[in-house]
């Protein structure tokens, strides 16, 4: 068993009196895809925000590759190896598809403070961005402005950005939300491809049961901010407590 890449210890955040994430302790290992489930408002997105740094924890710790990152700003966590795709589409809307990916590669290669060369002169960054677009089949849209893309293509571009970032830990927050039945499988294939890398740790917030069944090695369940179940998909899904109290309709829906 490889050692965990990401660990949260008693991770907690309070908004006023409301405890949105409640002492969640959990370890995630490379080569493993963990599905995070729970009803709306359970605290899944907030848990992600605590890990990637958009929200500061009230108490508890986050460790990445054994290093305490609880107090680091967002960008420093990204540099340390966290990659996050957001629940609501989050891109540079007026830049081109290629530039969106190129900026990610440029960030990863730490060339952002280069003042004196031409951005277009960094052919290697462009070539890599193009290669990523090729992999997700967005090459034909490379020169389009992002805001002109369909919702499905925008979500695909977010996954492309994650691939370009090459993080140690991938965090996907409902990547297929709002996508058509035809578009969703493409995203899931990409996530499966990411998962096939034994070095990659993948966290996936997802509601659709068939998706979880086909992709997840493990499921954790959040309810009212607390971690209430953790185990192999079959076990967790079979557990009565989880079925009735916490997942209710959402899991059996599909």
């Amino acid at each position: 068993m490889p050692s965990p890449s990401l660990v949260t210890r008693d991770l907690t955040v309070r908004f006023g009196g409301h405890v949105a994430v409640d002492q969640v302790s959990c370890a995630f290992t490379p080569g493993e895809l963990t599905a995070i489930v729970g009803p709306n408002g359970a605290g899944k997105t907030t848990y992600f925000n605590l890990i990637s740094g958009q929200i500061r924890a009230t108490s508890g710790r986050v460790e990445l590759m054994g290093r305490d990152i609880t107090r680091l700003p967002v960008a420093a966590r990204t540099e340390a190896g966290l990659g996050r795709a957001f629940q609501l589409t989050n891109l540079f809307p007026r830049l081109t598809v290629l530039e969106n990916v190129r900026l990610v590669v440029q960030a990863r290669e730490r060339r952002g403070f280069n003042l004196w060369t031409m951005a277009m002169g960094h052919r290697d960054l462009i070539a890599e961005a193009q290669a990523v677009l090729e992999r997700v089949r967005l090459t034909h849209l490379a020169d389009q402005t992002v805001s002109a893309l369909s919702h499905g293509d925008q979500r695909k571009l977010e996954v492309a950005a994650m691939i370009a970032l090459k993080p140690r830990v991938f965090m996907f927050d409902e990547p297929t939300a709002g996508m058509s039945v035809e578009e969703a499988p493409v995203i899931l294939d990409l996530i499966a491809m990411i998962k096939s890398d034994p070095e990659a740790t993948v966290l996936l917030v997802e509601h659709k049961m068939d998706v979880i069944r086909s992709l997840a090695d493990r499921i954790i369940v959040l309810h009212n901010g607390a971690l209430v179940a953790d185990g192999k998909p079959a076990e967790v899904m079979a557990s009565d407590v989880v079925q009735e109290a916490y997942l209710g309709k959402e899991l059996s829906d599909v």
Partner: peptide, 27 residues
């Protein structure tokens, strides 16, 4: 020269979406 450098591109990215720029690793 500066606005067309990698740095200039980051500035434009920040103007477009600072939240996103930070998330992909630009301080």
């Amino acid at each position: 020269r500066i606005v067309n450098s990698p740095f200039g591109r980051v500035l434009q990215a920040i103007r477009e979406n600072a939240f996103r720029a930070e998330a992909i690793g630009y301080r």
